[in-house]
């Protein structure tokens, strides 16, 4: 099971790299979002995939899943959500201001400023 998720994380990160190497701003943003998913999946795998009970306040629970990676991933997902939202707003704003969503044209110092 771990092997499958690790391979899946690799595929996600690989496609994220492909997306981020393209020239469109929106594709780059989607790439960063996909990359964060791949990394979170990796984190989940690192905490060992187990079927078990809830690890809270019960003496007769012996086989439980590690709660820490899940809590950490939740935090990381919230952060990634905020980041993606902000970059999307920024992409729209810069598209209106710069008139392009091609990073190839976002070089040098823009003049009429």
């Amino acid at each position: 099971m771990e092997i499958i998720t690790i391979v899946l994380a690799g595929i996600l990160i690989g496609s994220a790299v492909y997306l981020m190497l393209s020239k469109s701003v929106i594709r780059i943003i989607i790439g960063t979002a996909v990359m964060s998913h791949g990394v979170h999946l990796m984190f989940l795998t690192m905490g060992q995939l187990k079927r078990g009970n809830i690890p809270v306040l019960d003496d007769d629970v012996s086989n439980y899943a590690d709660p820490l990676p899940q809590a950490l991933i939740l935090t990381a997902i919230v952060i990634a959500f905020a980041l993606t939202a902000y970059t999307l707003v920024l992409a729209l704003r810069s598209y209106r201001e710069l008139g392009t969503d091609n990073v190839e044209e976002m070089k040098g110092v823009p003049h009429d400023d």
């Binding site: 701003v25 780059i28 990381a76 980041l83 992409a91 704003r93 990073v103």
Partner: peptide, 25 residues
């Protein structure tokens, strides 16, 4: 929101998001 800020800010954000993802990794 001046032009140079939006343009350079976007690069700054992308670089830092990637490195933050590696931080989680």
């Amino acid at each position: 929101g001046t032009k140079i800020q939006l343009q350079e800010g976007f690069k700054y954000i992308v670089v830092n998001i990637i490195s933050s993802n590696f931080f989680v990794l």
